[in-house]
Amino acid sequence: MHSFSILEPGMLTTVQALGFPHHVEMGVPEGGAADPLSLIVGNRVLGNFDSAPALECTLTGATVRFQEVATIAITGGETYVQLEGASSRTLQPWNPHRVNAGDVVRMGPITRGCRTYLCVAGGIAVRSTLFGDSTNLRAGFGGFHGRALRAGDTLDFDPAEARPVNRVMDADRFSPQLLDRRTLRAVELPLADRFDPDGADRFWRTEFTVSNQSDRTGIRLEGASIPTLCAGRMISEGMTPGAIQVPENGQPIVLGVDHPTTGGYPVLACIASVDLAILGQLRPRDKVRFEPVSVSDAHRLLRAHYQQLGKFPKREVPIR
C-alpha cells in the first residue's frame, strides 16, 4: 500500500466515491461525490474504475504530502495547484501527473465552482459498507472513519489497482459545462393542488442566488418567493437528489446528494439527470435559473451526455 497524508485539509475535505442509491429504504441517501462527473472523468484519466474514491475539497483546496510515488489528477472546481518537491511546478487540472515520494501538492482556494477532486491512480482505500465507499457525515460512516479529514490523517492507495492509460485526453472539455452553465434543466411535476400556475411560472422566470446556507444536503435559493397551496398539509414522501422543494417561506431548496431521504415540502420540479453534477459546483452567491424539459427530452440529453463521456475509455467493473 502507498499513502499520502493531509497537511492542511481546507474548509471541508472528505473521501467520496460515486453515490450508491441502493439502500434508501434505510434512510440512507445515495451520497457520494456532489459532482460525480468530475470524479468519473478524473478516475478515467487515471485508469481507475469510475467509482474509485477520491478527495472532495469544498471552496478551499487541501495540501497533501505523498509518502510514495503516485499518479494524480485534479478535476472539478477551478483552483491553482502547485507541486512542491525536487522539481516544483504548476499542475494542469484534468490531466494525469506523476508525483514523487515526499512531494507536496498544494491546492489554493477554489475560484470557480465549489468542489475540486483530487483523484489518485488506484483510488483511495476505504472500508466499504453496504452503502458504498463514500463519507456520510450526518451518520458518521464511510470514507475515512466517517468524518471530514484533518491535518495528520494518512490515507492509503494501491497504485496496482489502476490500469495504464495510453491515450491523451482533452478531459478539460467538461470544465465549461460544469462551471459556466448556470441554467439548469428540470422536469416539472404535475402541479396538482400544490402550486398554482402563477407560482410555477414565477419559479421558471426567476434568477435565483445560491445562499451561503448550502451544503451537500441541499442548495438553498434566494429570490422571488414561490407560493405553495398546501402549507402544513403535505404528507412526508420519498425524495431524490435534484428535487426542488418549496418550504413555507417560498424560497426553494434543491436537494443535494446527502439529502434527507423523505421530506414534507411540496416539490415543484426535479433537476434533469444530465445537469445533476452542476449542482455540486454551485457556490454561494452564484446566480442560477431553471428551464423546463420534458421527461423524454431529459432522457435524450442524458443519452447524448453518455455518448460524449463514452469517448473516454471506461474500465468495466469485473463481474464477481
Binding site: 442509491p21 429504504e25 404528507i235 414522501e237 420519498g238 425524495m239 431524490t240 431521504t261 432522457h299
Partner: peptide, 20 residues
C-alpha cells in the same frame, strides 16, 4: 436484477432507476 431502489413513505413509494 435490483434495477429499482425504493423509498417508501406513508402514502407513496418513490421508485428510482437508471433511466437509460
Amino acid at each position: 436484477e435490483k434495477r429499482f431502489s425504493l423509498t417508501p413513505a406513508y402514502t407513496t413509494l418513490l421508485v428510482r432507476f437508471h433511466p437509460l
